[in-house]
Design a protein around this nucleic acid. Structure first.
Length: 411
RNA sequence: GCGGGUGUAGCUCAGUCGGUUAGAGCGCCAGGUUGUGGUCCUGGAUGUCGUCGGUUCGAAUCCGAUCACUCGCCCCA
């Protein structure tokens, strides 16, 4: 409500932050390109039902986290809380069903009305990928290994851990669900309040409760693998042995689950301990039921999404900025403007301040981390020359004006 | 949405029992050097003490509300 403040949970990305975000996104995209993924850009808002139908009317995201409003024509519009639903909608409505397998990457802002915390904002950014139309476990392996390569490319290889689990196929899932309910129901009263609610709404969620008493109860609970069909087991084995063959370390976490019904088989998360409770940095899974559920032709799919803010916070060393050439005009500024233009056209990064005496401009050059300063003094210009100062070495010499590019390029 | 913590200069923070002119370091600006930075020396400027209200002779300090941030829960990237 109040005046000149950003809306709660939103943030400006100043150039320094923006550079970190850019690095995350560009690293992800350039690596994904090698796997054959192209970018898809879907709208930042959709009709509300795109999300309510895919995420389920009862999920937390839908019931309490969506930014939903009526537009001027009265349609219910929602700012996207995640990326998959929009891609799936585009797949169906855009006639992409003819071009399988489809490999796409996306990036951009997502919106959830939650209590902000470090690494959790109301407007946040994700990069993600979706691979549609591949039934076999090779797809799972490719998508996970691509995520791993991207995290390595970001220099986070030893800061994250891969956890993986199988949710089985529909048959396994149904069997497991009833086994779990059969186990938990008699102990209902010993569970925490939250878990009692989960037991009704989403029994699998009881598994990853953080309540100590719940953990004790859950420790003895049946596990998914007991209920998996041979086919589902085989699928998971192929995924894990593929990862092993690629040398990707992982931990099987039988308590790793997904809330929504269309998820099946592989579920995975890359986590870190460096971000407190917001430890999940990249998460994904297989969703063979989604496209069909949305009204499209039954199409298998798998994908993941990564939180750009969370990744950006983990990165220590950004690639260095180009070191500029600083131009320092003494009297008339026009020769410097002309030389700056010439150098920029030739591809150099040029720093040219708008005011200040020489001392100030030298200090500015130093702060900009310039390697060279080109001093355009009246005396030198009269001779058609400039002074070239090497700011690292502290040496300086006079060179012909026409040779500036050549001298700078040579270093 | 629920529970805890914090809010003082651009940044990191100090500020005693409520007491008169609110401090430090870093950064910033100026000078030492009329055309020479990074080191050094000297000087300078910072501020609705988050906001609104209350208690009091007097509030950065105590109380209430509110906003923001932060930690945890729920959930998730």
């Amino acid at each position: 409500m109040s005046g000149l403040q950003p809306v709660r949970g939103t943030h400006d990305l100043l150039p320094e932050d923006s550079r970190r975000h850019r690095f995350v996104e560009e690293t992800a995209f350039s690596i994904a390109k090698r796997y054959g993924y192209g970018e898809i850009v879907t709208p930042i808002f959709e009709f509300t039902e795109v999300f309510s139908r895919t995420l389920g009317e009862t999920s937390d995201v839908v019931t309490k986290e969506m930014y939903t409003f009526a537009d001027r024509s009265g349609d219910s519009i929602t700012l996207r809380p995640e990326g998959t639903a929009g891609v799936a909608r585009a797949f169906i409505s855009g006639g992409l069903t003819q071009s399988l397998p489809l490999k796409v990457m996306y990036r951009g802002p997502m919106f959830r009305h939650e209590r902000p915390q470090k690494g959790r904002l109301r407007q946040f950014h994700q990069v993600g990928c979706e691979l549609l139309g591949v039934e076999g476990p090779q797809a799972d392996i490719e998508v996970i290994s691509m995520a791993w390569r991207i995290l390595q490319g970001l220099g986070l290889g030893d800061k994250v851990q891969l956890e993986i689990n199988s949710l089985g196929d529909a048959e396994s899932r149904a069997a497991y669900r009833s086994a779990l309910i059969a186990y938990l129901e008699p102990m209902r009263m010993t569970l925490s309040e939250e878990s009692q609610a989960r037991l009704d709404k989403n029994p699998l969620r009881v598994l990853d409760s953080k309540d100590e008493e719940d953990k004790r109860v859950v420790a003895q609970a049946p596990v998914m693998s007991d209920c998996m069909t041979p086919a589902a087991k085989e699928f998971f084995d192929q995924v894990t042995s593929g990862l092993t063959a690629l040398g990707i370390a992982f931990v099987i976490n039988p308590k790793l689950v997904r809330g929504l019904d269309y998820y099946c088989h592989t579920a995975f998360e890359f986590t870190t301990t460096a971000l407190g409770a917001q430890g999940t940095v990249l998460a994904g899974g297989r969703y063979d039921g989604l496209i069909g559920q949305m009204g499209g032709p039954a199409t298998p799919g798998i994908g993941w999404a990564a939180g750009v803010e969370r990744l950006a916070m983990l990165i220590e060393d950004l690639p260095a900025l180009d070191r500029p050439v600083s131009l320092i005009p003494m009297g008339d500024s026009v020769p410097a403007v002309v030389l700056a233009d010439r150098l920029r056209a030739a591809g150099f990064t040029v720093d040219l301040g708008f005011s200040g005496n020489m001392k100030k401009r030298m200090a500015r050059a130093n702060k900009a981390n310039a390697r060279f300063a080109v001093i355009l003094g009246e005396d030198e210009l009269a001779r058609n020359a400039v002074s070239l100062r090497d700011l690292d070495a502290g040496t300086q010499e006079e060179i012909p004006l026409a040779e500036v590019e050549r001298r700078l390029g040579r270093e």
